[in-house]
Amino acid sequence: MKFLCISCDTVMDFVERQIPGDGTLAAVFECGSCNKEVAMLTNPMETQLVSSMGVKIGGREVPAQPMELSRTSMEGGKEEVFEVPESGLPEHQGHPLSVTWTPEAVGRLDNVPSFVRGMVKRIYTDWAQQNGISEMNPVIMDRARTELGLEGM
């Protein structure tokens, strides 16, 4: 998918993606020559068509997680089928920074269906480590969610 600014005959660059949570999606592209911006708005069916490929417009903020498409797309996934490590932290061999989860953050994570909980926990922890953050609390979770585009997580 490419957007062409006809006036400038210039291919527009991807700027940002917004997911309002109603199944629609907005992707903003900008012409590098005249700075004109356009937004591509997709309806829920079109959004689903793209997400069913397991890809994200504009690229990924976090690497694809194992069985991410299955976990995020299935209705009626079995609770507790994925074993979340007892320590409350996913394995991160070789990473020097350990991340401690406050009880409030753990409580918020408990609200996430266990079908995707391990995956979500890993995404938050990876983000914290990459940003040099050693404690995960609800405020940090909010920040991570915004930066990572983890709507609904």
Partner: peptide, 10 residues
């Protein structure tokens, strides 16, 4: 020119 939508790359 790539648009950085990165779909093909993914």
């Amino acid at each position: 020119h790539s648009t950085e939508s990165e779909l093909l790359e993914q």
